[in-house]
């Protein structure tokens, strides 16, 4: 199995293109199109007990123009810290980042002028209405988008005269995305844009993010919802304990898994789970207390025919068959040995 996409040591990569920012996938990588470059980035925080916490541990990657790039990982993996260093809000301990060719540290004003930022759970002034907040924030930039247009994008036109605190949670999230667009930025950073939203509002939000992306803006987001990453992102960096452990398109990450499907079924006559280890393409097999067999298989087309054959030969009957395609959760489990959620 090829594990080329697994960046166990992120900076030790084939440098066939002679560029330190070579990320993961030689096919997608194109140096002329990178809008964000992260180079050997490390961030350490002193802890109260005198230890140091390494929030970001020597990571490198590049983000291409026009894509939706997702940093996927559990809470505390280092997603927000990475984002805030790129945005110029935090200083790196080591390494450097660049946005549109401007250094996030040395040319921070130029970076800030060209990006839009939505912070995780930030709020705005209580006593300004939406239109006024957009005008106020617009005044901080040389180039300003029209507040009415911004409200149209996030479907809040009729709330223009409302105060921010009068909005629902989902509306506030949408509004903070609108604020991130006040300077008509080339790149938009969204830090957990759907955290705390109900499933419907989350799907609604995905539409807005796609809409923004379709206007030619590069979108960089963080999330700990693998479904979100899978649906929304062109490419995903999986981040855990401060390291990028995989970076590719969702499809590639999944198809690169040895087990691309999970097969589950019941049997008329119970047998031991080990029975199936001999069947072609079965990588792992187990049985739960309710008599449900679960097999991790490389491909359904490889393993299904011999399984049916086995049942016929042994006078058994297979019931309630379910084949579920592997998802990013399986990728994360495979890479880290733990699940994404908590």
């Amino acid at each position: 199995m090829s594990i080329a996409y697994i960046l166990q040591k992120n900076n030790v990569q084939p440098r066939a293109h002679g560029n330190a920012f070579q990320a993961t996938n030689p096919v997608l990588y194109s140096p002329s199109m990178s809008v964000i470059e992260v180079h050997n980035l490390t961030k350490q925080f002193p802890l109260p007990d005198g230890e140091t916490l390494t929030a970001v541990d020597d990571i490198s990657f590049a983000i291409e123009k026009g894509e939706i790039f997702g940093l996927l990982g559990p809470n505390g993996a280092g997603k927000t810290t990475t984002l805030e260093i790129i945005e110029g809000l935090q200083k790196p301990s080591k390494g450097r980042t660049a946005v549109l060719g401007f250094d996030s540290l040395k040319e921070v004003q130029k970076v800030k002028q060209r990006i839009g930022v939505q912070l995780q759970s930030s709020s705005f002034y209580d006593y300004l209405n939406l239109g006024e907040v957009l005008t106020l924030f617009g005044n901080f930039y040389p180039e300003q988008a029209d507040p009415d247009e911004l409200l149209t994008i996030v479907d809040l036109t009729e709330k223009k005269k409302s105060l921010v605190k009068e909005l629902s949670g989902g509306q506030q999230q949408r509004f903070s995305i609108a604020v991130s667009l006040v300077n008509n930025p080339e790149i938009v950073f969204l830090d957990e844009p759907t955290t705390g939203l109900d499933p419907q509002a989350r799907r609604h939000m995905w539409q807005f993010i796609s809409k923004i992306n379709s206007q030619g803006k590069t979108v960089v987001l963080t999330t700990h919802y693998m479904e979100e990453a899978e649906v929304l992102c062109d490419r995903i960096g999986i981040i855990d304990h401060g390291k990028v452990i995989a970076l590719d398109t969702p499809e590639k990450l999944i198809s690169d898994l040895e087990a691309t499907a999970n097969l589950s079924f019941r049997l008329e006559k119970d047998v031991s789970a080990e029975t199936f280890n001999g069947i072609e393409g079965v990588l792992e097999s187990n049985k739960n207390g309710e008599g449900v067999y679960r097999l991790k298989i490389s491909h359904a087309s490889v393993s299904l025919p011999p399984l049916i054959q086995w049942a016929e030969q042994n006078n058994n009957r297979i019931r309630s068959v379910e084949i579920v395609r592997a998802n990013l959760e399986d990728v994360f489990l495979h890479l880290t040995g733990s699940t994404l959620r908590e």
């Binding site: 809000l89 004003q109 912070l119 759970s121 930030s122 709020s123 901080f140 930039y141």
Partner: peptide
């Protein structure tokens, strides 16, 4: 506390 300052810091102001 409400991260309004941080949000302002994310602008060129």
């Amino acid at each position: 506390e409400r991260k309004i300052l941080k949000r302002l810091m994310a602008t060129p102001v």
